[in-house]
Amino acid sequence: MMSQIEFNQVSKRYGAVEALRNVSFLIEPGDFCFLVGASGAGKSTILKLIYREEITSEGDVSLDGVNLASLSNRKVPLLRRGMGIIFQDFKLLPRQTAFDNVAYVLRALGMPPAEVRRRVIGALKVVGLLDKVDAVPEELSGGEQQRVGIARAIVNGPRLVIADEPTGNLDPQSSVEIMALLEQINQRGTTILISTHNLTIVEQMQKRVIAIADGQLVADGILNNLPSEAAIMANYNLGT
């Protein structure tokens, strides 16, 4: 079976700064992966390469067998429609309701209003916010705002969801709830890739971890029975 995401000897340089060095890994359809590493380790660069915000300096990044470097700029929007992206700061439109925030992209794609309503209500139901459809972001807690962000990411039925520090602005309880929600979405067959440095969450979830340090892949595997956050830090050299 074809891997959903394939990094093959990928290096990325920004001028003289080498953000990634010879990084290789595969992510299969339906995987749930954490991308961990300290700030500046190269996590964001990996995500940017996947959603084709950047292209590699060396090596190849493929998504469903398509080499992203060969993808024309015109086709990038199509690529992105096949994935959902979740942001640390939620990136909700402040003056629009939860419903309108989730519906925004569907409307921009010219979807019929009835279909927009069906999908948005469906997505808000998945994230448990059916009672908040008319609330604007400032009326929602941080966790609820992130749920709206997740609803927006899944409303178009993507096969891949990328989350960049989704719990970075949340309290521990909301973080756990968000992770449970992402796991629930994963169980429906959607591939999930989460960039984080919240090792407590990583430890609790017991999922595959791709660890990056100084632009290099330092570990790739499922964490089992790890004693503590400190041990993970020590094992994978993840200085903060």
Partner: peptide
């Protein structure tokens, strides 16, 4: 900027 970034990330065409 925020709105435009969201649109770009969600795969809205540049012309839109």
């Amino acid at each position: 900027g925020r709105e435009i970034e969201i649109l770009r990330m969600m795969g809205i065409a540049n012309w839109y």
